[in-house]
Design a protein around this nucleic acid. Structure first.
Lengths: 339, 339
DNA sequence: ATGAAAGCGCTAACAT
DNA sequence: ATGTTAGCGCTTTCAT
């Protein structure tokens, strides 16, 4: 069976015996239409299975495409999946659809995707940046009026809207929780590279908590890891120090997993642990894992709302929205230090 | 600053002093062009920051939009996120981008999304169906030549390409593993409703394994759950039976989590467990969780390849691709039955 | 090697 | 209440 040509507005018009514009009016409900023609038109639309070509419509109206371009480092990461879901919920009512691409944390690929999305004339562009990408080149794009918004981390080299977690505050709270249980030497296992925004913020929170408690900051207790394996190795290393930490703060979700695995394998259940970002099954680990939970759905929703506000003409200066984190106490932070 | 109008092909042409068509030729490399004009054109393109409007191009060429529409029940589920990533990798080389929507397992919303995607003239449509949706209505759409492809479950009411895991075989292998360790009463905690494809297949595999070992099938050992909480409750119920199972087979990932949680809370570590679908941290649970792992990236990749083949003119009849599952032995299946 | 005109499917702006 | 014309930004077709 050869592919039947998709019916056009014209086909419907001919079928009914009216002009294309009349059909258009019925479908979009702008001009006035008699009830009789409206009915006939709708019947013909149904019969032919007509679907207006959205691209043609967008071209003619000159407006942007009714899509939001979203670039994330990794789709398999439920954090970004949930963020995407939050965006979708927020913009669905406005008829916007998500165009999604993953950069694999490669700045070049991220640029490619952004460029494709802009060529598609997306209504708005949202980017959860890859490690090491710079966004100064987006200034030109933004001058054309496309709202550009950053997720999880602010843009580099560009003042743009962004939505982030309360990284510093969250980390401070998590570390303060450990300090409250008597820990004075607390290891920090964070992301790499050291300059990475989320790592920097969370490390700052860690130092805030130490300072507030009058504890010294010891660089020997700070490790960097960019994979679960790395984090496990870093955990082993910290625990092997001459004057080892009695508690650990894992500053992101794979650090959390790596640390949990390392502690379990080393049978070091007495080491207290708080992690940034929640993980599945945290409550049945032994001990149950205390975390500083992010709210990815809220991040997505806030991003969606900000984009809509920009599309509605909000020309205010770049705005940073901070989404609260929440300390979820489950037990692993309450192990007392052993001496 | 007012939004600067996006430059068009015409603007570039004027800037250089040639016709629009010449610019088009340079950019698409079809007609012949002199090296001199090519250079001038490219310079002007760079200077103006011109990006061809993909929608306009698609309209004119009459081809489908260079997107693949993907509908999944839930974006936050890493299974679907990873599937999406697999699709993207497979089709990226052909310049196709993902248009993504989540149905929230609501058939009406799924239909809406599909309809929007078709109106956008996607090159291909991929659907991981919501529970309870019927797809007979897609026959019309498919007659227009859009490849339609189902993920995770086959279509209902329509013969279409689909890519699924080896559910039956995988379940059989997982249950056989339990039988090999001496279990004769094995509980099955599956999805709801009972008619759901994946549940049916996995239950069939469970029965295959029982039959192969000459064990009776006892309906009292089969439970249904559609959330982690449900699954935990079902686990408690099965363990409370007069003649309780000594092992459990959790037939999907939330059943897995629910069962793990229930066993941990009831301190019933001696109950053997195998789960369908891998979960994070499975290897540090106590005991480490043995699973029948799916390969979502391979599912996505296969789907992408199938779609490309269809776009390349493959008109063969509907094809079902089965992606192998893999038994990952970690320990929880090796608890011996207590008597 | 380049340009002019026509048209993809639709809607804005003016008719009637 | 409906039709006509023009044109969105691009590419096809046919000239030159």
């Amino acid at each position: 069976m050869p592919a039947t040509r998709r019916p056009t507005l014209h086909d419907v018009a001919q079928e009914v015996g009216v002009s294309a514009k009349t059909v258009s009016r019925v479908l979009n409900g702008d001009g006035p239409t008699s009830a009789a023609t409206r009915e006939k038109v709708l019947a013909a639309v149904e019969r032919l299975g007509f679907q207006p070509n959205l691209m043609a419509r967008n071209i003619r109206t000159g407006g942007p495409d009714t899509t939001i371009g979203l670039v994330v480092p990794d789709m398999g990461n439920p954090f970004f999946g949930t963020v995407a879901g939050g965006i979708e919920s927020a913009v669905r009512g406005r008829g916007l659809t998500l165009l999604l691409g993953s950069s694999g944390d490669d700045p070049a690929r991220e640029r490619d995707l952004i460029s494709t999305f802009l060529a598609r004339r997306v209504s708005a562009l949202m980017v959860a940046p890859a490690v090491g990408s710079d966004h100064a080149y987006l200034k030109a794009a933004r001058a054309t009026g496309v709202p550009v918004l950053f997720l999880d981390r602010p843009a580099t080299g560009l003042a743009a809207d962004c939505v982030v977690s309360s990284n510093r505050d969250g980390a401070r709270t998590g570390v303060a929780h450990l300090i409250a249980y008597g820990h004075r030497r607390i290891g920090f296992i964070g992301d790499r590279p050291a300059g990475l925004y989320t790592r920097r913020e969370r490390l700052a929170g860690y130092r805030d908590a130490l300072a507030a408690a009058g504890l010294p900051y010891d660089r020997a207790l700070v490790a960097a890891a960019h994979s679960q394996q790395d984090a496990a190795a870093a955990t082993d290393r910290l625990l092997g120090l001459p004057d080892p930490p009695t508690a650990l703060f894992a500053a992101n979700n794979f650090a959390a997993m790596g640390t949990v695995v390392a502690l379990a394998q080393a049978k070091r259940r007495e080491v207290a642990l708080v992690a940034f970002d929640d993980i599945p099954l945290a409550d049945i680990l032994e001990p149950p894992l205390t975390v500083v939970a992010q709210d990815p759905a809220a991040i997505g929703a806030a991003a969606g709302r900000t984009a809509l506000a920009r599309l509605d003409g909000d020309r205010g200066s770049a705005r940073t929205t901070v989404i609260d984190t929440r300390l979820v106490v489950r037990g692993s932070g309450e192990q007392r230090p052993r001496r």
